[in-house]
Design a binder for these strands. Structure first.
Length: 112
DNA sequence: ACATTGACCCGTT
DNA sequence: GAACGGGCCAATG
């Protein structure tokens, strides 16, 4: 859950802002988002921020996956895996197998 | 203020 | 190619 301290709010908002720039039908890796956040930002923070994100939010959290092109989400939230996969498939992204998609094809290439 | 954990990544065995 | 370990920042007890 996001605690509204000044520092975290800033970082979290940055994450959400970047995630919002991911175009429809494309996906970005945690590492990419971390790199856009700034040097020295580990990918874990993105995961933390997105995990804290409520489902009602308009942030396309499902377009963020790990560097291997897999849906992470760990075992605890395996119900969300199907949800994320459904959302991505709804955007025209085809999965190779369950929870695995083709990064070369769908990876977002930011211009900045 | 210390230790542990986390929707991760990368280099080395 | 799989398994292991170190590393970064933020949140929680």
């Amino acid at each position: 859950m996001p605690v509204n301290t000044s520092k975290t709010r800033n970082t979290f908002e940055k994450v959400y802002k970047i995630v919002n720039t991911i175009p429809y039908g494309k996906v970005a890796t945690y590492g990419q988002v971390a790199a856009l956040l700034g040097p020295g930002m580990p990918a874990r923070i993105i995961g933390y921020a997105l995990h804290a994100l409520p489902p009602e939010s308009s942030v396309p959290w499902h377009r963020v996956i790990n560097s291997r092109g897999h849906i992470s989400l760990t075992a605890a939230q395996n119900d969300n895996i199907s949800l994320q996969q459904l959302l991505l498939e709804n955007e025209g992204i085809k999965f190779i197998t369950d929870g695995v998609l083709d990064l070369m094809q769908y990876l977002w290439h930011p211009e900045n």
